[in-house]
Design a protein around this nucleic acid. Structure first.
Lengths: 339, 339
DNA sequence: ATGAAAGCGCTAACAT
DNA sequence: ATGTTAGCGCTTTCAT
């Protein structure tokens, strides 16, 4: 009981009694076709359930496929989902379809996925680089005219276009906000590994704010946590230390959730908090959480615009676009230090 | 300054001084090859940055592409991201790559995306059906041997395999939990449109629990809200009604977030809440939120297993797998009614 | 161990 | 308005 072969253009042509090229003309609307054959062809297509084989078409036409590839490190993070939405709506207007894959934080899988996309001749490739991944292998495809855009973090081993948030400025602003409120001991809860681009940049912004206010940089106030649970534990520990912080800058949404969880577990509502990344529940908590909001949709849009410009022949040198963040004061960052 | 043509198998062959077929043999490791040529070929591949054109390969080989397509209605919902993760890890073991696209709740775009996947000859197609979409056009591909699996909701116009949560049982259990706590006026906050499969099933489970306890079904306690904001407003309104509920069953995560937001705005911490779908912040709120947790990763795994079995020749009739939900009492569902 | 020819499904270029 | 031929890049089949 073998499956029937997939219907081809020839099957349709035979059914109607015309040549394959005529069917092709009808379907792609290029050459002239009589209304009569057009109808007959469409009927046969419907009847046989014909799906044109785009691989064959693309191969003959020679151009790239009408898809854009996106590689993200983690499907569960809605941040990337929103980024993807921004790309999607921008490329769709050009008749391109966004296809995405997740590498689950694995550099080997990132490599495999990019080969998958390259081998299928996507029009452009967008990558949110995973820690440890190298991107030198993309050079050939890029030289052959395929745009490569790095999102959220710069790529490694390849100079290409990129789009990032104003991580440093945003973190500086968030920290300064706490300092203005009177805080002098401010903890930083960041992602791991500490070499992660966004973490480095945000830590740098945090330090800039401290320096500007002539506050000391205390390493014991810099905490790690890749997951919510880890961040929560780190926060609980530091709140029990001899000189606990009176305020916390959480450097991403998982860190922020963990920080809130840690504070709840300790029954501490008196610690000020500013979170980098907006949170779905930011407005629901008491106090509501002050955030340094990123604009993931704008990041996606900017990346798509760069890629489309490249496809249109833009040959200027690689550039990096910075999408601004915005401080949204909501309450948690306005708590004064105890005195 | 035109882009250089993409390197082909022949380019590599010419560089080495062998035939194309020899290069093909080296790359796919089928026929016998001498170690010497093997090395030279690999070197040339590296030097020229050769990426085999999978479209050409697949076309000649005739089989399906080594990708699996997934269509989801919304990128921003982490529920679907987790489902995708479950599929991904299951199909990867078979050398298949998961590619996903979002139709943004638009049935036309769902159709376009499925054509995109079909035209590229994916090995299998997974669809989370969007409201208003029809799936009859998938019949031909399915007949030709491509597995189709519907996730989270049944498809329309096509009998195919499916995987869903135990929506009705879960909602009944969640509602019964509130009834056991002494509540007699329990509101239902659901998604829109009211015809949505998951909403219908969950409402049915809610009604079953009411009936089992001989409680009246009061339509004024059934609220709608497709977004967090809409749900919040509906909740605020009902709390001001003459006979307000003392407990709420939120039928999905957006409804739950909106419900919490509405309660916070009204300063009401005395209303019991059970949420269908687990929430990232469920444990952080006070009281922590009692949920009827789904298992999205298990949904994805089950769907992948069905598809793989079909690819292995399973020709039994279409079946629907139900993945159980689990009640997680955390506090918000244990609030007693005021007396 | 390697090469030559044919063909996968489609369309560009040239007929008619 | 339609048909024919050739070929996209690769692999199969059959040589050598």
């Amino acid at each position: 009981m073998a499956s029937p072969r997939r219907t081809t253009l020839h099957d349709v042509a035979q059914e109607v009694g015309v040549s394959a090229k005529t069917v092709s003309r009808v379907l792609n609307g290029d050459g002239p076709t009589s209304p009569a054959t057009r109808e007959k062809v469409m009927a046969a297509v419907e009847k046989l359930g014909f799906q044109p084989n785009l691989m064959a078409r693309n191969m003959r036409v020679g151009g790239p496929d009408s898809t854009v590839g996106l590689i993200i490190p983690d499907m569960g993070n809605p941040f990337f989902g929103t980024v993807a939405g921004g790309i999607e709506s921008a490329v769709r207007q050009r008749g391109l379809t966004l296809l995405m894959g997740s590498c689950a934080d694995d550099p080997d899988r990132e490599r495999a996925l990019s080969n998958t996309f390259l081998a299928r001749r996507v029009s452009a490739l967008m990558v949110v680089p995973t820690v440890g991944a190298d991107h030198a292998h993309l050079r050939a495809a890029r030289t052959a005219g395929m745009p490569v855009v790095f999102l959220d973090r710069p790529g490694t081993g390849l100079t290409a276009d990129g789009v990032v948030s104003s991580n440093r400025d945003g973190a500086r602003e968030g920290t300064a906000h706490l300092i203005t409120g009177g805080h002098r001991r401010i903890a930083f809860v960041g992602d791991r590994p500490a070499t992660l681009y966004t973490r480095r940049e945000r830590l740098a912004g945090y330090r800039e704010a401290l320096e500007a206010a002539h506050l000391p940089y205390d390493r014991s106030l810099v905490l790690d946590g890749h997951t919510e649970a880890e961040a929560a534990e780190a926060v609980q520990r530091v709140l029990h230390s001899p000189q606990p912080p009176t305020a916390i800058l959480a450097a991403n949404n998982f860190a922020a959730m963990g920080t809130v969880l840690g504070m709840v577990r300790e029954g501490r509502r008196d610690v000020a908090l500013v979170s980098f990344d907006d949170l779905p529940f930011a407005e629901v908590l008491e106090p509501a959480i002050t955030t340094v909001a990123q604009d993931p949709a704008a990041i996606g849009r900017a990346a798509a615009e760069i890629a489309l410009a490249r496809l249109d022949g833009d040959r200027t040198r690689a550039r990096t676009v910075t999408v601004p963040t915005r401080l949204i004061p909501r309450g948690s960052g306005e708590l004064p230090p105890p005195r």
